[in-house]
């Protein structure tokens, strides 16, 4: 059965505002007032986002001049540049729009994205690893090492994500990074529509374009002030 989702095709924002908006959508979902939401957004300038538990001082020692912002989700550092495609998905666990488990939900979302990429002629696959009882640790830089159900092309990671689960609400933040050697015809709009189509089919989602609610906007502004401190 097709489910209605909110689609927010957002404008480019400052890094802290982008994170604040995702968090605001998540917090507003806690009260059960919102539909599952797919937000697609850009960054006003190149920057690095780091995982919730990553050490900022350690990342500063890499010597990059790019601004750094902390994500509410886990995972490693992501470089957001002109070839990046950033999105977030927010839903209540009990809504059944995605499987409850972390890996299962991650897999479903990435199959949708993978199908979108395949429709663009990109020869990508879903990465699966042999665990062999070994503990997996998060890479310091997200795109250096694929993890289970990331998307790769020629053994190179091209899509990854991380989640935050809070008060039975899931925030899934993802990035698709296609360089020109992977996709010489690079076009943001073509990529956006291909991914939307792939996700729509995989998640049985009918995306209805919306804006952020007033409550989400106000909360995002408050959170942005807090994140900047």
């Amino acid at each position: 059965m097709e489910r209605v989702w909110r689609l927010i095709l957002d404008e480019a924002h400052e890094p802290h505002m982008n994170m604040a908006i995702d968090e605001a959508i998540m917090l507003c979902q806690k009260n059960g007032t919102c539909l599952p939401t797919l937000r697609i957004y850009r960054w006003l300038y190149p920057c690095i986002s780091i995982g919730r538990f990553q050490n900022l001082d350690e990342v500063l020692m890499w010597g990059s001049d790019l601004p750094i912002v902390k994500r509410p989700t886990g995972g490693g550092a992501v470089f957001h540049n002109e070839f990046g495609f950033t999105y977030s998905i927010v839903y209540q666990e009990k809504s059944s729009v995605l499987p409850r488990g972390v890996l299962d939900s991650y897999r479903q979302i990435h199959i949708g994205i993978l199908n979108g990429l395949k429709n663009l002629g990109i020869d990508a696959v879903l990465y699966t690893s042999e665990r062999n009882g070994r503990r997996s640790l998060p890479p310091k830089v997200c795109f250096t090492t694929p993890a289970e159900f990331d998307i790769t092309c020629d053994n190179k990671k091209i899509a990854g994500a991380a989640q935050r689960r809070m008060f039975e609400v899931v925030l899934h933040q993802g990035e698709v990074s296609l360089s020109l050697d992977v996709w010489p015809d690079w076009s943001y709009n073509k990529l956006k529509y291909a991914i939307l189509k792939g996700l729509s089919k995989q998640l049985s989602a009918k995306f209805v374009e919306c804006c952020l609610s007033e409550k989400e906007k106000i909360l995002a502004e408050e959170l942005e002030c807090y994140l900047r401190r």
Binding site: G51, G74, P138, Q163, M166, F167
Partner: peptide, 16 residues
Amino acid sequence: QEAAVVESVKAAFSLS
């Protein structure tokens, strides 16, 4: 109330 956070490779979980 959120009291702790546990993180794995894929997700950070808030614990109330």
